[in-house]
């Protein structure tokens, strides 16, 4: 293959990309199940301010898509399949999500709690 010349674009533009090379830290794992086109739990509490890993298990034979504009996530989970979503760090607040294949039934909300409330909730659940 003959290459007569190489042309390109300024280094400055590509340098932007190098600022975002992969870095990964350990994340807390949360689980969400889909059964009969419903999310279980339909209200999920997570800590604000840290990235979390959300394992979504689809127990229905048909596919479902986890979708949330406020979380900026969409992910298809095949029938009887599973998928992992990486979410956050989130500001404290409520984040609505739904199943795009069954939006009338598959609805849920993820609630990101500030540090103090999250620790209180963990302590309450431990007792």
């Amino acid at each position: 293959m003959k290459i007569n010349r190489i042309k390109g674009i300024p280094w400055q533009h590509l340098a932007l990309i190098s600022l975002a090379l992969p870095v990964q830290a350990e994340q807390a794992l949360f689980e969400l199940q889909i059964k009969d086109h419903l999310f279980h739990p339909s209200v999920l509490y997570v800590p604000a301010g840290e990235k979390i890993k959300l394992l979504v298990l689809n127990q229905d034979p048909s596919p479902e898509e986890f979708e949330s504009f406020s979380l900026n996530r969409e992910k298809v989970i095949l029938g009887n399949g599973k998928a992992t979503l990486f979410i956050g760090p989130l500001q404290p607040g409520r984040y609505h999500f739904f199943g795009e294949y069954n939006p009338d039934s598959a609805q849920g909300v993820l609630i990101a709690l500030p540090e103090a409330q999250w620790q209180q909730r963990r302590a309450d659940n431990a007792n």
Binding site: I6, K7, G8, I9, P10, W11, L14, I17, S18, L21, P22, V23
Partner: peptide, 19 residues
Amino acid sequence: PSVLYAACGALMLLVSGHS
């Protein structure tokens, strides 16, 4: 990460220069 670093580096070398 090393695979992506290498791919990014190779692409940068390939397209460096004047456009």
